[in-house]
Design a protein around this nucleic acid. Structure first.
Lengths: 223, 223
DNA sequence: CTCAGATTCATTGTATACAAACAGATAAAT
DNA sequence: ATTTATCTGTTTGTATACAATGAATCTGAG
């Protein structure tokens, strides 16, 4: 669906932010459509929890620090399980896909120069490919379905752009550990590796949120 | 939403079955509405995975035995985690709610007479209340959100109506174990109890599906 | 008889129209 | 001045209309 993609992308890109009131008419005008397809897209996004209904229109959902913690707990649980299952069910082809994704990841990190947004965007994208490959190898499409819903949220915060080279190199190491565990069919080690990896991400996002909050407080004081 | 409830209920009640082609117009006529609200309801149900888009119209999703296995794995993971978290975060009030639900469950089981559909429906409802109470006590609304999506699917199969008194008494025992573990703040025991409980349900549904399949095969032969 | 092409009919996708609900502003009354 | 009531403009909810798409049927040629 087109309107769906448009709105979702706008949220992910930060064009629509939490608290912002979105009316159907204005959205429709912005993308040269009538209200009908817009409404359908909104219903989908509501069902996914990305957007919440307002008395008047909708708003992109506002996630608190507590939400982030909960979502990462959930994601750790799901992706950790997926990794352990991947270690059991993975085929040779799955392994090839995972390795391919990880080589791209390594290349992206090596080419990366400190605080260059575009190269970071690349890294995020390739990282996702790697995670996707693992979930695919777990052979549980229902978990896949739920993970895909959970993964979007942290992206909204664009905390990734704050990773430094050291952290990136570190996460590459964890990737390699996970990959090796899945290759050697060690479910528990794969799970633990994934836990570590995602909790790293969680800490990072939370720290980022803390900074944003401070900036916000600063602005409040300035007034 | 009204059209949403209508369609979802129809699926749960078995009025709309997998493979059945549902056109917007006919749905609209059936509930005296125009197509517009119907379409929105369908988009929601699609996002939840209960219904799949067809080239022409939609159909309620057909779940295979493998889907059931995957969904129960997922549910075990999520509800097991919720139980362990409940053992950590539960308040006195949560405990009261859980005990209340479980007393109702015990009463419903004691009043139950073998293969009475209505009393089994009651039991299913009260059982859900118990599970709800645990998830609430876990203090993670995002897990709650995902569990609620996962729980609907097995209901569609109405395998519950095949429980016998012995199985019901057995599941009451497991409920009590879980409750005690949460009360005594033993996360791991709560998780294991929940695992056992849900895997019991899974075996039951799978056995039921096997029977249905046999009946189906019988019918095929009769032709 | 079989298959390709044209035709018809059902069904979706989108636009538009209008009524009902609601928020905010203005006016009136105490 | 504060509160209540009314009015007004905006925004949603639903219905309807029509074009685009796809499936099924029919027709004619080989």
């Amino acid at each position: 669906m087109d309107a769906y993609e448009f709105i979702k992308d706008a949220i992910i890109e930060g064009k629509f932010v939490p608290g912002m009131r979105l009316a159907e008419e204005s959205l429709a005008k912005e993308m040269n459509l009538s209200r009908t397809p817009i409404r359908e897209a909104i219903r989908q996004l509501e069902a996914e929890g990305l957007v919440i209904p307002l008395k008047r229109g909708v708003s992109v959902r506002h996630f608190t620090k507590d939400d982030i913690r909960q979502i990462y707990d959930l994601r750790t649980l799901l992706e950790g399980y997926a990794a352990s299952q991947a270690a059991i069910h993975r085929t040779e082809n799955d392994l090839v896909e995972m390795e391919k994704a990880n080589i791209l990841y390594e290349e992206a990190i090596n080419q990366h120069v400190e605080s260059d947004m575009d190269s970071l965007k690349d890294i995020v994208r390739v990282n996702q490919k790697f995670h996707e490959a693992i979930v695919t190898a777990s052979k549980n499409e229902h978990i896949h379905f739920h993970i895909s819903k959970v993964v979007v949220v942290p992206i909204v915060f664009r905390s990734f752009y704050w990773y430094n080279s050291f952290q990136l190199k570190q996460s590459l190491e964890v990737h390699k550990t996970i990959l090796e565990a899945i290759k050697n069919r060690e479910p528990e080690r794969a799970r633990i590796g994934m836990h570590e990896h995602i909790y790293q991400g969680r800490d990072h996002v939370l720290k980022h949120l803390e900074q944003i909050k401070n900036i916000h407080l600063l602005k409040e004081e300035e007034k």
